[in-house]
Simulated scan of single mutants.
Amino acid sequence: MRAAERARKRAEKRELRRFTRRTRRRRIAWLTAGGLVVALVGLSLGAVYSPLLALREIRVEGTTSLDPAQLVDAVDGQLGTPLALLDEGELRDQLAQFTLIRSYSTEILPPGTLILHIVERTPVGVMVDGGAFDVVDAAGVVLATSPERPAGLPLIELGRGDVDGVAFRSVAEVLLALPASVRDQLDSISATTRDDVTLTLAGSTQRVVWGSATDSDHKARVLAALVAIHAGSGPGVYDVSAPGTAVFHAG
């Protein structure tokens, strides 16, 4: 009996030692894995916020009217800032001063480059404001003001309306729909409601009754075809208000 008891105790001790070794190995494995995770996180954070990944160059793409150097000067206060800490709100406020910017997007190019992709506003016409001419885009944003009428842009006449009214929205939609072949011949465009858009062609006594901005793409194609035929026909009126039965009335 004593021999059996001693054998049992020895077996229990061996099992306890095996259990202890397994527990110790698991603890070491967990501690090692945890240490590796902490080290990796630390290295990652160190790399992200390191001066090696700080902003050192700003590039501007997509501009035609704006001077890229002016945009860089406006936002270069963030040079030296880690890329992960660039302030998008500050960047937005700095670029908001440029009226010609319709929208922009940013691209980060490690290790230290910020690319600004700019989409500029496109002027569609000019409006008289007192004794000056305001160049406006399709949203009615004033892009520039000149004491003389700028060449190459139609005069927008709204009667008593303004850029916040339905007449301007109709005019803008028509201007965006016109093909270059017609837009280049345009002297003025007028409307007092959404349904009475009228165009006057430059260097002639020809007008265009457009009507509403509805179906403007179709009307633009029909008008381009009629102008190609009747441009030299003298005074007259193109009526494309119903594009399916559009006609040129001479005289």
Rank of each mutant, 00 (worst) to 15 (best):
A172S: 15
T200G: 05
S204Q: 05
S188W: 10
D164W: 04
H117P: 03
A220T: 04
L226K: 08
T193A: 06
L199K: 10
L95N: 03
L95R: 01
P235I: 00
L52A: 15
T32D: 01
L100Q: 14
D184P: 02
V197Q: 05
V142W: 05
A246M: 00
V75M: 02
R6Q: 14
K219V: 09
M1N: 06
M1S: 13
E157K: 12
R26C: 06
G62S: 09
E61A: 15
G46R: 12
L95S: 03
L175F: 10
E107T: 13
E173I: 04
L86R: 01
E15V: 08
P68R: 01
L226P: 08
E88I: 03
A225P: 02
P110D: 08
A144R: 13
L91D: 00
R27F: 11
R183W: 05
A224C: 00
L45Y: 13
D196G: 01
G62Q: 04
L55N: 02
V209K: 13
G152R: 12
P82F: 01
L83E: 00
A29L: 14
M127L: 13
Y238K: 06
D195W: 04
G62D: 08
A144W: 06
G42D: 09
T23W: 10
R27A: 15
V163F: 05
P110I: 09
E61N: 09
A202T: 13
V247R: 11
R18Y: 05
S146F: 12
G244H: 11
R221D: 14
V163I: 10
P111W: 08
D67T: 13
I156A: 11
I58T: 08
L186P: 07
A29H: 03
A74Q: 04
S65G: 09
L223I: 02
A177N: 10
L158F: 10
S188C: 01
T64Q: 14
L53K: 07
R24K: 12
E107Q: 15
S241Y: 00
I156D: 10
D93L: 09
A33E: 05
Q94Y: 00
A96L: 08
G34F: 02
V72M: 06
F168T: 09
S50C: 07
D73Y: 07
L36F: 11
A180S: 14
V60M: 03
R194N: 06
A246P: 01
V247K: 06
A7F: 05
V135Y: 03
I58W: 04
R102T: 01
G236W: 00
S170L: 06
S188L: 02
A220V: 03
